Amino acid sequence: MVGYGPEDNHFVAELTYNYGVGDYRLGNDFLGMTVVSSQAVRNAQKLQWPLKEISAGVYETEAPGGYKFCLQDKDSPKEDPVLKVTLAVSSLQKSVDYWSKLLGMKVYEEDEGKQKTLLGYADDQCKLELQGVGGAVDHGTAFGRIAFSCPKEELPGIEALMKKEGQKILTPLVSLDTPGKATVQVVILADPDGHEICFVGDEAFQELSRVDPSGGKLLDEAMAADKSHEWFAKCNIQKPSA
């Protein structure tokens, strides 16, 4: 999990490495993440990371796996510099109805000309931007999901509403044990375009999402001990560089 602060009040991204997968086919479902940070821009310039200026003080860049990022060259007005995550949708109105009327998100901005709508649960949190693409949404082979935490007593109501409205439930409400830690309750849904949405009981999530002060050291040790190159060599497959 990587982010600019604790998961309790910051957006974080979960990066996964799957053994046996040499590459992924990206679809058009994830359109990018917007970060407001002059420091991020300076870091990219210092490391000679490819930056494309798309407007004054706004740059587009790309992660090693092909995912796009938009960097705004200014200081964030809030604690978390992650401004928004943008997802593609085939029908903007249908998706806005799902996320706002069923999942209770507030509509912050609408741009009919650009087929974009900005939604969120709170003013100081990362926002979700839905963008109409005028066609089908392709999830490729590397798609993930968006997760939210909420009081666990709200989870049965979320599941019941989706059943009543005939919406897709990928994983019915279930309790998942984490050895040595909390048992967390989750329900996983899918919106009209198949974007996966996980709602997690906040009480257990609070325990599971605590920042590990030695997290960086443990990650370095795990990567140093990684033997996946041996598996790729045995299977005569070139290991991906990132």
Rank of each mutant, 00 (worst) to 15 (best):
G135T: 12
V107Y: 07
Y59R: 10
K168G: 00
Q238W: 00
A190F: 04
K52D: 05
P213E: 11
C198V: 08
E165P: 05
E109F: 11
Q167F: 05
S149V: 13
D73H: 12
T141E: 12
D111T: 11
Q125G: 02
A147C: 14
V85L: 13
Y121N: 10
K84W: 09
L71H: 14
D226R: 15
Y98G: 05
H139D: 04
R210N: 05
D73I: 07
M33A: 01
K78I: 15
A88K: 07
P192G: 05
D23N: 06
Y4T: 09
L218M: 13
E196W: 07
A204N: 13
Q238T: 14
L128N: 13
A190C: 02
A44F: 04
P240W: 01
G27S: 01
N236I: 07
W49G: 00
S95K: 12
C235Y: 10
L119G: 12
Q185H: 08
A225I: 09
E196K: 14
K127L: 13
K181H: 03
I158Y: 13
G157R: 15
A44N: 02
G104H: 08
D23C: 00
E110M: 11
E159N: 08
V137A: 10
V2M: 08
L176Y: 04
D193Y: 03
L51F: 02
D111C: 09
E79S: 15
K94F: 02
L51I: 07
A182Y: 03
V41M: 01
L170T: 04
A222Q: 14
K217R: 14
V133N: 06
L103M: 13
P50L: 10
V96R: 10
P156R: 14
V21L: 01
A182D: 03
M162T: 03
L31P: 01
L31R: 05
Q72G: 02
E62D: 09
G27C: 01
G120A: 05
E221Q: 15
G5K: 06
G3Y: 03
E230Q: 10
Y59V: 07
D75M: 12
A225Q: 15
D212K: 15
S38K: 02
E196Q: 13
E7Q: 11
K168N: 03
K116P: 01
F232M: 03
K217C: 03
M223T: 15
T61C: 14
N236G: 06
A122P: 02
Y108K: 11
G134S: 12
V21H: 00
N43S: 02
S37I: 00
